[in-house]
Amino acid sequence: MLEKASQIRVNPADETIGDGRLAVRFLLTGEQSNGSIAAFELTVPGSQRLLAPAHSHDHYEETMYGIEGVLSLTVDGQQHNIEPGQALCIPRGAVHRFDNDTAETAKVLCVVTPAAIGPEYFREAFAIFSTGGPPDHARLMDLMRRFGLTPAPQPPQG
């Protein structure tokens, strides 16, 4: 029992992944929680739109809790602004995306239950977006699907 207790520590993941536009700091991954929960801070600079498309996930809920600034989430077509001290649970199957429409940096705590997504997803996503040009759409769609994210149909251009 002593060995198991020695493995328990504050912020066992504590890894920051980012590209200057977004930063994800994992506090806890599925590896440390027997797959039950993942928790990470998401920092979004002011006036930053998410590059990835709107999506849903059928295998987990995602709850966002506001730490600083205001993050705008669109969930099933309805906009919600998350401010410090506010929380929003995104249920399985709900199509969602987020943007920071203010000039100030926004930071939220994201909790994923069960822990179906982890640092590996974000490492690969930031690699796709770091090419300098437009992201490889097919690669991005493959990545999203491999990690249980279903891209939302894109509205017709016209």
Rank of each mutant, 00 (worst) to 15 (best):
E3A: 14
I90Q: 04
T102C: 04
A103C: 09
Q79T: 14
E31T: 12
V111T: 15
I90F: 04
D142I: 06
F147D: 07
L71P: 07
G66T: 07
R146I: 01
F147Q: 09
I37G: 02
K107Q: 13
G133L: 02
M144K: 03
P12N: 02
L143H: 01
L28D: 05
E83I: 03
S47Q: 13
P135F: 02
D142E: 15
R139G: 15
P151R: 00
L28W: 05
D136M: 03
V112E: 04
A116Y: 10
L42W: 08
E61N: 13
F147T: 08
D101A: 15
F26G: 06
G93V: 05
N34E: 14
M144A: 02
G85H: 08
L42T: 13
G30N: 06
L143E: 00
E68N: 10
Y60W: 12
G133F: 03
N81S: 13
A115R: 05
F26D: 07
T105H: 03
E68R: 15
H80P: 03
G35C: 09
Q154I: 11
M1H: 14
S36Y: 09
T102Y: 06
S56W: 01
A23L: 02
E83C: 10
M144S: 00
M64S: 13
L28A: 11
S36W: 05
R49I: 09
P84G: 04
P156I: 07
A127L: 01
A54D: 05
A125P: 02
V95A: 12
G35P: 08
G46L: 03
G66Q: 05
H96N: 09
Q86H: 09
N100C: 02
V108S: 07
D142P: 09
G18D: 04
D19C: 01
A5F: 15
